[in-house]
């Protein structure tokens, strides 16, 4: 039972990290109708800049600002230089241009930071673990990640439901011509949304830094998961992204944790282990296929 609680928490924590990645991407998808494969690169930039600043200054706080700033800047630059020219083009062009951006970013990190992974430590205040239940210690840092993810989710919800800019963004997702006609500076709004999406990705990268290896190509592994989240949640819906992210996090974690045990009831241990390992790595894709077969537009489609 304790194990199950712990795995549940692990799943949730993976889920909110995915949410940070997905929130920005789903907005970009939904509002600008643009596919951005390079979202993972912002995640990587956040992690790299954060790790570098943390290493040289020793301050995690400074690292946060640097990482957020760098990924925001990278996002705005990518939008202004490349993606802005592709809004009215085919999805195909967008896929290709951003594929090119991925190649470039990965190679640049190798040129600038070298080939070996970078080190990033957990800030002293958040190291160690706490007993959340008797007999169940849990790393404080992971709890902090969970908290930040939830806080961002609440913040986004507040922005979208309570502020003027949030309403413009939401309106843009439904009908951008109408919003433009109403006198909203749509170019600026797009750049802003894109930059913020990149910043959230950078935040996710920064927070992953102490847990994961900071290395070239780290963005792609999470990018594909992010796509799965967005498609399950419904493109353009932040609420969908949140629920999709948590579901994917849970399916992935619980699958890895409990499939071997489950299959051992049916098969011999050796076969069970091997089948479970294969199934666990495919679990989220199977889950996604199931969702789309039942609801082709995802759980919470933003467009009608």
């Amino acid at each position: 039972m304790l194990l199950f609680c712990e795995q549940l928490l692990n799943g949730l924590q993976l889920g909110v990290t995915l949410f940070l990645m997905s929130a920005g991407l789903t907005l970009v998808f939904g509002i600008m109708q643009v596919i951005n494969l390079a979202h993972g690169s912002f995640y990587m930039i956040g992690a790299y800049v954060g790790a570098t600043v943390a290493l040289h200054s020793g301050s995690f706080l400074l690292a946060i600002f640097a990482a957020l700033g760098a990924s925001w800047l990278a996002g705005c630059l990518a939008e202004a230089l490349i993606l802005r020219h592709l809004y009215r083009r085919r999805h195909l062009d967008q896929v290709l241009a951003t594929f090119g951006v991925i190649l470039f970013c990965n190679e640049m990190t190798r040129i600038i930071w070298g080939r070996q992974p970078l080190f990033m430590d957990i800030p002293a205040a958040l190291s160690g673990s706490v007993q959340i239940l008797p007999g169940l210690p849990y790393p404080i840092y992971r709890l902090a990640v969970l908290a930040v993810g939830l806080a961002v989710a609440v913040l986004l919800w507040l922005i979208f439901t309570r502020t003027r800019i949030g309403m413009q963004v939401r309106a843009g997702a439904v009908n951008r011509e109408m919003v433009a006609a109403l006198g909203v500076n749509i170019t600026l709004l797009y750049t802003l949304v894109f930059g913020c999406g990149a910043m959230l990705a950078g935040l996710a990268g920064l927070m992953a830094g102490p847990i994961l290896a900071v290395e070239p190509g780290m963005g792609e592994s999470i990018l594909i998961l992010t796509f799965v989240v967005i498609v399950i949640g419904g493109i353009g819906s932040v609420r969908g992204a949140f629920i999709g992210a948590v579901l994917v996090g849970l399916v992935d974690t619980l699958g890895r944790a409990f499939l071997p045990l489950l299959l051992r009831l049916l098969l011999s241990p050796a076969t069970a282990d091997s089948v479970a390992a294969s199934l666990a790595s495919m679990a989220i894709y199977i889950f996604m296929a199931l969702v789309l077969v039942i609801k082709p537009k995802g759980l919470f489609p933003a467009h009608h």
Binding site: N10, G11, L14, A208, A213, M218, T253, A257, A277, A280
Partner: peptide
Amino acid sequence: VYTKLDQADYAAEIA
């Protein structure tokens, strides 16, 4: 235990 190739998060295995 056999994990996914290029897996990033090992929380489940560690638990």
